[in-house]
């Protein structure tokens, strides 16, 4: 009887954890790198879109206002990053930090806008990232040394101070990872690495998302805080239940 109870309780816990981990499955969005080989047509189409959607904050010719920084020289990489991750156009009520959301524009419109922003001044182009398994060790080293302090060892995100969050990297594409390193979005510093190192980091970020992670249900992969919670909520509660059941006087002759 007691054993049965302990067993049922364990099963419930297991089922709960299943449900939790199912929710963590990443939604994959992949966008084509934009900005290479732009035409004058694209630039003028981009300018039209720009004037309606962006000029209120970044000013008519991208020189910037009190509501948004100058875009001269930020480059195609910055524009593609901000637009493909849905950060721009910035919503005034979104708080201090531009958050990832579904892109507001179609891939064609994004290419046009990127071409226009790139025409405002020379800046980093959208990088071409070719991930390769052989780059993994280099990628892990670079990631742990440079990115893990903010994004966490498993890229599940972390707080960086000033109210900003380093978001989880579960949705970032390889190109976006490269762009983020080149363009320093928000509170993130720039990491002007070589093309191969960019690809190495992107490879590792992809690895973290897709590789099998042995050991059972991952409880966040962010270390001892969730582990402590589980030790108490699962371990100690189960054992308390067992202790109460074992300690109960089951003798039917007594009440």
């Amino acid at each position: 009887m007691r054993v049965l109870w302990a067993f049922v309780a364990s099963l419930l816990v297991v089922a709960g954890l299943f449900a939790l981990s199912a929710e963590r499955a990443p939604a994959r969005t992949r966008s084509q790198p934009a900005g290479s080989g732009s035409t004058t047509n694209q630039v003028s189409a981009g300018r039209t879109l720009y004037l309606t959607s962006c000029a209120s904050c970044h000013a008519a010719n991208g020189q910037g206002t009190a509501y948004g920084p100058s875009l001269a020289g930020v480059g195609a990489a910055a524009a593609d990053f901000q637009l493909s991750t849905g950060r721009m156009p910035f919503a005034e009520n979104a708080g201090h930090q531009a958050k990832r959301k579904p892109p507001a524009f179609t891939p064609d419109q994004i290419r046009a806008l990127v071409a226009y922003v790139a025409s405002l001044g020379a800046g980093p182009a959208v990088p071409t990232i070719s991930t390769a398994p052989s780059l993994l060790p280099r990628g892990q080293q670079l990631f742990i040394a440079n990115c893990a302090p903010c994004h966490g060892a498993t890229a599940n995100g972390g707080a960086v101070g000033g109210g900003a969050l380093a978001p989880p990297l579960s949705m970032a594409t390889a190109v976006q990872v490269g762009e983020a390193m080149l363009t320093a979005p928000g509170q993130m510093p720039a990491f002007p690495l070589s093309g191969e190192d960019l690809a190495a980091v992107a490879t590792y970020v992809e690895y973290l998302r897709t590789a099998p992670n042995p050991g059972g249900f991952s409880i966040g992969g962010i270390g001892p805080v969730p582990e402590g919670f589980v030790a108490w909520l699962v371990g100690v509660s189960l054992l308390l239940l067992i202790v109460v059941l074992v300690g109960h006087d089951w003798d039917p002759r007594r009440t």
Binding site: Q140, G215, G216, V225, W232
Partner: peptide, 30 residues
Amino acid sequence: LMGGLIQINPVWTYGPFIPTTVSAPAQPDW
């Protein structure tokens, strides 16, 4: 049951100790 089903301290994702680096979030056991 816990050891078999729930991952704990996945050191391979934290990587080896390198004196010049710190990890975050860095917490001790509870």
